[in-house]
Simulated scan of single mutants.
Amino acid sequence: MEDQVLTLLLYCIPALITGIVAYLFFREYFNNEFERRKYEVAKELNKQSLPIRLQAYERLTLFLERISPNKLLLRVAPVGNNKEDYETLLIKNIEQEFEHNLAQQIYFSDNCWSVINASKSATVQLIRKVAMSEKIDNADKLREAILNEMLDKPAPSNAGLHYIKKEVSEIW
């Protein structure tokens, strides 16, 4: 009887080892296959979404360029001579541009979107700060004062432009 149990064990142990090895092999194979398919799907999605993401980056780059005070003042001329009206017109123009591109935020990282938003806010703040000066009494002087303010320092939108360029370079 003991011989039979020993013989049975001698047959079962190699079968059990073979079964364990086969299980481990197939588990590894299926895990690799799952990861490969996941990679293929991600690659295909990236291939389809990359042009859309790049277009979003282009649009927000254009937005930041358009709200740069130097370019904004050239593009948006004062309607009248009232500095408050011109200040409102400039800020309204920036807000409209921003709202027009608001949906693009889904293609940006949270940090990048925050920098873009901060660039917009800083530009609005710059316009408001300059307009608060009591020396400025009309729209033309406001334009001139904003341009003079920009002579010494870079536009607030430059920070957003640099961040967008950095993010786009990471895509490649």
Rank of each mutant, 00 (worst) to 15 (best):
I94Y: 00
E87D: 11
F108V: 03
N82Y: 02
L72S: 02
T88V: 11
N101K: 07
V76P: 00
L102K: 10
S109N: 04
I136T: 06
E134T: 10
V76E: 04
K129F: 10
S114D: 08
D110I: 15
E99F: 09
S133G: 11
V130E: 04
L102W: 10
N82R: 00
N111R: 09
Y107G: 02
N93I: 07
R75Y: 09
D85N: 10
K83A: 05
N81W: 14
A77I: 13
E97Q: 08
I106A: 13
I116K: 00
E99V: 13
F108W: 03
I106Q: 09
Q104K: 09
F98E: 05
F108N: 02
I94L: 01
L72V: 01
K92G: 12
F108L: 10
R75F: 09
I91G: 04
C112N: 09
L73T: 05
N117C: 10
K120P: 02
A103I: 15
I136D: 02
S119N: 04
E84K: 10
E87L: 00
L73N: 01
R75C: 12
Q104R: 08
Q125E: 10
D110C: 15
K129M: 12
I127Y: 03
I116M: 04
Q104A: 11
I91Y: 01
E84V: 12
P78N: 09
P78D: 02
V115F: 00
I136M: 11
V79A: 15
S133A: 13
E95N: 03
F98G: 09
Q105S: 10
T123E: 03
L90H: 02
N93A: 00
S109P: 07
I94V: 08
S114N: 12
T88N: 14
S119F: 01
C112W: 03
E84F: 06
E87A: 00
Q96C: 09
R128N: 04
L73R: 04
R75N: 10
E95M: 07
S114V: 04
T123K: 03
A122W: 04
F108P: 05
D85L: 12
V76G: 03
N111C: 14
N101I: 05
I91P: 01
M132G: 15
M132T: 12
E95H: 13
I127C: 04
F108K: 02
L90F: 07
Y107A: 03
H100E: 04
S133R: 07
A103C: 11
N81K: 15
W113P: 03
V79T: 14
I127Q: 00
